[in-house]
């Protein structure tokens, strides 16, 4: 029993990071019914940005957020405003294809600039851990990931509940025409929403960059994690994103614990399939 404590703890901590990776995609699906296939690549773009700023300025990776968060907001706002908004509301496929195109362009742009080498963001917390018992130790980096995920998603929740813009985004996702009749410029609102989704991707990208190695083509790997999280938890639900993150991470780590590391991804997707079979709308999904 005791040896289970470690994978379960790691599962919980990693689940917080998974939730943070997924929240931006989940949010955009909930609001605009957009499946942002470029979400993973946007996140890896943030990893590279964080890496460059850390190296250039010689600062703690956390401080690069001051630059990367506004930068990614602008990227998201322009991405939505100039590309996605133009093809929105016609059918499901055009926005999907545009996002897919952006995904390919981003990957190749990163490949051209940064070469295919493996990268990571070096930080002093990466190797530290807190020993609790003989069987249990907490990786400081995982703990930081978890707490950051908690704070970011909590702030996002407050933003949606308490601010005019947050409420306007929810109103526009409920009924676009009625929102316009309230004086809401819905297209601009969608731009803001994507900007905010990309702000969460900026934070996720920095944490992922510190925790794992990344390449120009790593984006889709995290896109699939994000998909898993939102499918398990239910699309567009903040609570669901958290629970989905925990379940997916836990399934992966317990699978690796019982059957060996080679089964980590497989066991995650098996749980995903089980949820799809039993509750296709996700645990907290409505429709």
């Amino acid at each position: 029993m005791q040896e289970l404590a470690q994978p379960i703890l790691n599962g919980i901590l990693l689940g917080g990071l998974y939730a943070l990776i997924a929240i931006g995609m989940s949010m955009m699906f909930g609001i605009v019914k957009l499946v942002n296939l470029a979400h993973g690549d946007m996140m890896i773009l943030s990893s590279y940005l964080a890496m460059v700023f850390t190296a250039w300025l010689g600062i703690n990776p956390f401080f690069t957020l001051v630059l990367t968060i506004p930068a990614m907001f602008i990227v998201g706002f322009l991405f939505q405003g100039f590309l996605i908004n133009r093809v929105l509301g016609k059918a499901m496929e055009p926005p999907l294809l545009v996002a897919f195109g952006v995904s390919i362009i981003l990957q190749n742009l990163l490949l051209t600039i940064f070469t295919p080498d493996a990268r990571s963001i070096i930080s002093s917390v990466a190797t530290r851990s807190i020993v609790v018992t003989d069987y249990l130790s907490i990786s400081v980096l995982y703990l930081v990931n978890f707490l950051t995920g908690l704070v970011v998603i909590g702030l996002l929740y407050l933003f949606f509940q308490k601010t005019y813009m947050g409420r306007a985004i929810r109103a526009a996702s409920d009924d676009q025409v009625a929102a316009q009749l309230m004086g809401i410029n819905t297209k601009r609102t969608y731009g803001f929403a994507m900007g905010i989704a990309m702000m969460t991707a900026a934070v996720a990208g920095m944490l992922v960059g510190m925790t794992f190695t990344f390449y120009p083509h790593t984006g889709p790997q995290y896109l699939i994690i994000a998909f898993g999280v939102v499918v398990i938890g239910g699309l567009g639900s903040i609570k669901g994103t958290f629970v989905g993150g925990f379940i997916l991470a836990m399934a992966q780590l317990l699978g690796a614990h019982y059957f060996g590391p080679g089964y980590q991804l497989l066991s995650g997707y098996l749980v995903l399939l089980i949820v799809l079979a039993l509750r296709p709308q996700g645990i907290f999904g409505s429709v």
């Binding site: 409420r167 306007a168 929810r170 109103a171 009924d175 009625a178 929102a179 009749l181 309230m182």
Partner: peptide, 19 residues
Amino acid sequence: RRIFPRLTVYENLVMGSYA
């Protein structure tokens, strides 16, 4: 009517004062 179904009554009214 086109009220916002997933917003509270209060939030619906607040959206009216968006301008």
